[in-house]
């Protein structure tokens, strides 16, 4: 269960103040996979970061009663002078996982092989993404926050990651941002629409997609 209680969040960029959330309240049910939709620049990623607890609301409260992941898909957080293995160890220790098992899992999944023993700064973007994806799949959460994950790698890797994704996320809650209506239809059963600092809840995924298209047309 994740709840936002009268949450406001805004920031100033080059002197222009932008209000992302304006006293928004929402109770996100535990048993629904949620898609977050909104127009470009409405602040979907910020909302997700507020939900994750990475960013603090200006006012109001965010309550989480389940284990919520960090916003998956971000490539930051890796120390580029440290090796892949050391980064994995760090995250698995942080979340109290057995680092050996996590390393094995990520090595197996990411197919990075010996590169894991090299500093992350030598990685290509694709390698970093594979590392990040593999690592996030290795840690157990009740709720996964997925910000625009796009499959990386070649066809076979895409297939593999989709398989892991599906397997791993069955029985877990997903809150995702995606521009692909296909992905949203596949994974989500409900949606949140972020507009003008308010959150609108839809328990029907088709309705929200319809409204989303209407808004885009504006």
């Amino acid at each position: 269960m994740i709840e936002l209680n009268c949450v406001s969040k805004g920031y100033k960029l080059k002197g222009v103040r932008k209000q992302i959330l304006d006293k928004a309240s929402i109770r996100i049910p535990r048993d629904q996979n949620i898609a977050i939709l909104g127009r470009n620049g409405a602040g979907k990623s910020t909302l997700m970061r507020v939900i994750a607890g990475v960013e603090l609301p200006d006012s109001g409260q965010v309550m989480r009663s389940s284990k919520v992941s960090w916003p998956l898909g971000f490539k930051g957080g890796f120390n580029s002078t440290m090796t892949g293995v050391e980064n994995i160890k760090f995250v698995s220790r942080l979340y109290g996982h057995d680092s050996r098992a996590v390393i094995d899992y990520v090595a197996d999944f990411s197919e990075l092989g010996k590169s894991l023993k090299l500093p992350v700064k030598t990685y290509s973007n694709g390698m970093k993404a594979r590392l990040a994806f593999g690592l996030s799949m290795a840690i157990d959460f009740d709720t996964y926050l997925i910000d625009e994950i796009t499959a990386v790698g070649d066809q076979s890797f895409k297939r593999k990651s989709k398989a892991v994704f599906d397997e791993k996320l069955s029985g877990r809650q997903i809150i995702m941002i995606s521009h692909s209506m296909q992905t949203i239809r596949k994974y989500c059963s409900a949606g949140l629409f972020l507009e003008g600092g308010k959150l609108y809840y839809y328990d029907n995924i088709e309705e929200i997609i319809r409204d989303y298209k209407l808004m885009l047309a504006q």
Binding site: V54, V68, W70, P71, G76, G77, N79, V91, L94, Y95
Partner: peptide, 9 residues
């Protein structure tokens, strides 16, 4: 800064 992307920290 980068570390703060992990909500635990």
């Amino acid at each position: 800064r980068a570390l703060l992307n992990y909500p635990l920290i």
